[in-house]
Design a protein around this nucleic acid. Structure first.
Lengths: 146, 146
DNA sequence: CTAATTTAAGACAAGTAAGTCTGAATAAAC
DNA sequence: GTTTATTCAGACTTACTTGTCTTAAATTAG
């Protein structure tokens, strides 16, 4: 049972963050990503393909090929990734699953959840992967880059 | 793709809330719940069985049988239900899925997510299903109880 | 005791997410 | 042009979640 985001989405967040550690335009192979992040090879391939299709990444085939960020790391927020993979259902649906729950017909935790949900949203929107990468370089969080 | 809680868990929250609308000890059949809440009959049966096994509900077989709350509605919080069905993974796991992310080795959103997660936790713990039922009776949220 | 009604239990089916495998397309290097 | 390394694409498998069906067990009412 995954927590709030799908496994795919978690992998996507991790992989893009890792790419943000590299100089802009530098190509990184699936092999390297898969090894450093412990993500199944072909599964990650599909995820990156998807992100490439959505414009968040660039890809190049052949030797020296791989993936790089499709725009400056400062411009890619966590929300971009989450939205591309999982969509924004969590922003609109009732947390208790009541189909009849809306703003005009709110369930008992509608307001409370609304605040928390907005908090999650702003966390995702206000955090870009350049910041993430910077934090990842700190000795507190060791995810070795070669 | 369900939002934060599993479908089962959403059903459990809805069903227990509905039971809290009834006088304490009053038995309600799966048939009634399934009809009012639009939840698949046998699937709901299994969920209620599980909640009964965990002590949150009472059950009785035979005519006049059904389910009722296993303790006073004021004492059953949303967290009791969520924990019984989905467990508490969302309280402990990294939101980005980093296995190496811990308090000592925090990912870039560890702190921020920690605050939000605690907000969700306190929403769940501070809301009991008597309160939920009370809100559900308001005309704003119409879920007819004959 | 019998009939009717309900939960209990388990096998099964369908749907979705996760992961694997193989071969094609592309591009670099020699 | 051949070789090699890589992404691209699709079929396939596996695992998990959700939903269905059938029968057994329990309990009430007559």
């Amino acid at each position: 049972m995954s927590i709030i985001f799908s496994r795919q989405c978690e992998y996507a967040l991790q992989a893009t963050s890792y790419l943000a550690l590299k100089p802009a335009g530098k190509m990184t192979t699936i092999k390297e990503l898969t090894k450093k992040l412990n993500i199944p090879y072909h599964f990650l391939g599909k995820i990156l393909q998807n992100l490439t299709y959505k414009g968040l990444l660039n890809s190049q085939k052949g030797p020296t090929g791989g993936f790089s960020l499709g725009m400056p790391a400062q411009e890619i927020t966590l929300y971009h990734i989450v939205d591309a993979i999982d969509g924004n259902d969590f922003m609109t649906k009732c947390v208790m699953g009541f189909p009849e729950c809306t703003g005009k017909n709110p369930c008992a935790v509608h307001e409370k959840w609304g605040g928390l949900r907005d908090g999650i949203y702003s966390m995702l929107v206000n955090k870009n992967i350049a910041q993430i990468a910077k934090e990842m370089k700190k000795p507190e969080f060791r995810l070795l880059v070669d």
